[in-house]
Write a protein that binds this DNA or RNA. Structure first.
Length: 478
RNA sequence: CGAGGUGUGGCUCAGUCCGGUAGAGUACGUGGUUUGGGACCAUGUGGCCGCAGGUUCGAAUCCUGUCACCUCGACCA
């Protein structure tokens, strides 16, 4: 394995994780701050990563029969107020439009914090028969929440996301949909983003405002803190009753629909940074890397080198890879560091020595491993190495996730472990909200999820010592 | 939102205590030599000192407010 170097402008990750994160976000040219708190510029490189995520997810949505739509930005207060739990959950963080020009509005309008109410109003208009169901809609948009403390990608006031909203004839159909989309998110995270996740159900305290069930995927960052990377909700028929979304079934009886909603946001980019990044900067999973292979001509002024690099890049492009030839007049070493900082998964060096031998030098971003590969089969070699980078990133993250899951049986033990090294704590739980709150008060950890794999570890509730029939994960969260 | 810290060319910072011509490194432009892990020589450009008020003959420096970022808490995707 090659010697690891770190970029001096980046704070070492283990010295100060928060500062390291900020350094990477800025040096890799992902964002720029603006004069409005919590509103950042997504620069071309960050937006390209988001486009990569969109491309994958949108394909999954279309493959499962979903259609894209667009809802308005503004929601009248009366509409937001229709579902009681929902409005109570979001009211503290909505921004209001109160004036049109200089005139005060009769009714103030909120900037969408999420669009359940808009979808519901529309569904009430367009659903009348069982033949209209299911309705499987998604929208790509931004939403706005007046957050108090903000961090790029992890918690901003305005952020980009997708929100799926579906209406089904019955509970079974809706519940199945909520779990199907959770699985889609898990596949995105694990396979494409190389980010292993825990899948499970949220407690009542952590549920989405207005949901019957909230499911989530939870990822583990490099500092041991948890990141909720995606959520999917079974909404029951509560919204349908509040908004009168009814249809006639095959026997001509009036029924309310059952609904779901689900979303992932640009927070995923924060997750990618914190799950995979190292002291040299980003390490991007190949599936969403804007540039998968950086081709670097060595001694480009020497006969044939520059042209060979261009030809090589052409061949890789034609093979379907995203390739960039760096023909800038920087030194080779500078280019190496630059592309490492930006997380390019594979570097391809082409110099006079290589050309004599009919090879090029491939260097993996995840391990730094170098391999000479023959130019004749370079397309296959590059594709294979990219797959290896994805697998390498995944294995590393998986190992960390698993090593950071610890079992505990008493509150004191939870406190001690949480203070020593953050991670996921796995315990049994009686199901009582007061015990959940006691854990938070004592350790700072919130419940993350009750995993679908409920193989019990035994014991009683770590707080009240009562009978505990379920397994639950706890963790510090972003 | 509470406590603490930091804002000075694009970036990292010195100068602030004790008011008196805005500095360094790096980056950037130009010419040249270089290029297998952040090259070198020469010569240039670039600063409303975060922003807004105030004190003063005079403010980067003192006072007030405000905004942004960092840390620790409280609240949340």
């Amino acid at each position: 394995m090659a010697e690891k170097r770190f970029v001096e402008q980046i704070t070492p990750r283990d010295a100060d994780f928060a500062q390291w994160y900020t350094d990477v976000v800025k040096k890799a040219e992902l964002i720029d701050y603006t004069s409005v708190k919590g509103c950042v510029v997504l620069r071309p490189y960050a937006y390209a990563i988001w486009e990569g995520i969109q491309r994958i997810l949108d394909g999954m949505f279309k493959a499962t029969g979903h259609e894209n739509v667009y809802m308005p930005l503004l929601i009248p207060e009366s509409l937001l107020n229709k579902e009681k739990e929902h409005v109570e959950g979001f009211a503290p963080e909505v921004a209001w439009v109160t004036h049109g020009g200089s005139e005060r509005l009769e009714e103030r309008l909120c900037i969408r914090p999420t669009s359940e109410t808009l979808f519901c109003e529309h569904y009430a208009h367009v659903i009348s028969s069982w033949r209209d169901l299911p309705k499987l809609y998604n929208q790509w948009c931004s939403v706005f929440r007046w957050e108090k403390s903000t961090r790029p990608f992890l918690r901003s006031r305005e952020f980009l996301w997708q929100e799926g909203h579906t209406a089904h004839a019955d509970e079974a159909g809706a519940r199945e949909e909520a779990l199907r989309m959770l699985d889609a998110y898990a596949e995105l995270a694990e396979r494409h983003l190389a980010m292993p996740v825990l899948k499970g159900r949220k407690t009542d305290a952590e549920k989405f405002a207005g949901a019957v069930e909230t499911y989530a995927i939870e990822a583990m960052m490099h500092d041991g803190q948890a990141l909720q990377a995606g959520t999917s909700h079974y909404l029951g028929d509560g919204f349908a009753r509040a908004f009168s979304i009814q249809y006639s079934d095959a026997g001509n009886a009036q029924r309310h629909v059952h609904q779901t909603s689900w979303g992932v946001s640009t927070r995923l980019i924060g997750g990618i940074i914190m799950a995979h990044g190292d002291d040299s900067g980003l390490r991007l999973p190949p599936a969403i890397a804007p540039v998968q292979v950086a081709v670097i001509p060595i001694s480009p002024q020497k006969e044939g080198v520059a042209q060979a690099a261009r030809d090589l890049a052409d061949r890789l492009s034609r093979a379907g890879l995203r390739v960039k030839v760096d023909e800038s007049d920087q030194s080779a070493g500078w280019k190496f560091a630059e592309h490492e900082m930006r997380g390019v998964p594979l570097r391809c060096e082409v110099g006079p020595r290589d050309l004599e031998k009919g090879v090029c030098l491939m260097v993996r971003r995840d391990t730094g491993e170098k391999a000479e590969v023959p130019l004749s089969g370079v397309e296959g070699s590059a594709a294979g190495l990219l797959a290896a980078v994805r697998d390498g990133l995944y294995a590393e993250a998986k190992e960390r996730l698993e090593s950071r899951i610890r079992d505990a049986f008493h509150l004191d033990e939870m406190k001690a472990i949480a203070a020593a090294q953050p991670g996921f704590l796995r315990t049994m739980w009686c199901g009582d909200a007061s015990c959940e709150e006691a854990v938070r008060a004592a350790t700072g950890m919130k419940s993350r999820c009750m995993p679908f794999d409920q193989t019990p570890i035994g014991g009683r509730c770590p707080v009240c010592s009562g009978k505990a029939d379920r397994l639950i994960y706890w963790g510090l969260q972003y």
